[in-house]
């Protein structure tokens, strides 16, 4: 088990005993990741933030029922996912009407335009493009593994698939990324 998972287990136990400080620490640790995960579904940051905050409020209300034998991390990610799916179900028309898909790429380039042309930056943007072009499920499994540091059991739990399928998704994603990277290098 890695350090972060151990820390989260310790925090989970303290939170179940109503420790507000532990709650704050977990919030600071996991809020950005949960927002990023919600953005994956919603393509919209503000609603993603609202959903991540709601999730923490639910966690606090349910703190005495936290199952300490299970991963709190996957519990939070799963809760965010379910709230995103509910939101999409209830606001189908809204999402279709407004072309929200166009908001994210501009938002993402925000980093620093003056350095945009440096090699690292260009590569970062290319990788982002390649990851974004992966099939949805592959992309989801890959991002949870690579950027949010979930293990395959936790991802399996969140995505409601088997750990084996998680591995398959990520392996296929990596192979695809490797092909993109090789093609890019040959063109240089």
């Amino acid at each position: 088990m890695n350090q972060e998972s151990e820390l989260i287990n310790v925090l989970a136990e303290k939170i179940s005993q109503s420790d507000r400080q532990a709650f704050d620490e977990l919030f600071r640790l996991m809020y950005p990741g949960l927002v990023r995960y919600a953005v994956l579904y919603l393509k919209e940051k503000q609603i993603a933030c609202d959903i991540a905050q709601d999730t923490f409020i639910t966690l606090w209300k349910q703190r005495t029922n936290i199952d300490l034998d299970k991963s709190l991390k996957s519990f939070l990610f799963r809760m965010v996912k379910n709230q995103c799916l509910n939101f999409l179900r209830d606001n189908e028309r809204l999402i279709v009407d407004t072309d929200l898909m166009n908001i994210t790429p501009a938002d993402r380039q925000g980093a620093d335009l003056s350095e945009y042309h440096t090699h690292e930056n260009r590569l970062a943007n290319l990788f982002r493009e390649w990851i974004d072009s992966l099939p949805e499920r592959q992309k989801e499994a890959f991002e949870l593994s690579r950027f949010e540091g979930l293990n395959h059991h936790e991802i399996a739990d969140v995505m409601e698939i088997s750990a084996k399928t998680v591995n398959n998704h990520i392996v296929t994603a990596l192979q695809q990324l490797r092909a993109c990277y090789e093609a890019y290098q040959n063109n240089e």
């Binding site: 938002d107 990788f127 982002r128 990851i131 690579r146």
Partner: peptide, 16 residues
């Protein structure tokens, strides 16, 4: 290598 390089993309992700 691919795993390591793909980490670059994290910087382009939604920033909080």
């Amino acid at each position: 290598l691919i795993w390591g390089k793909s980490g670059l993309a994290e910087d382009t992700d939604t920033y909080i």
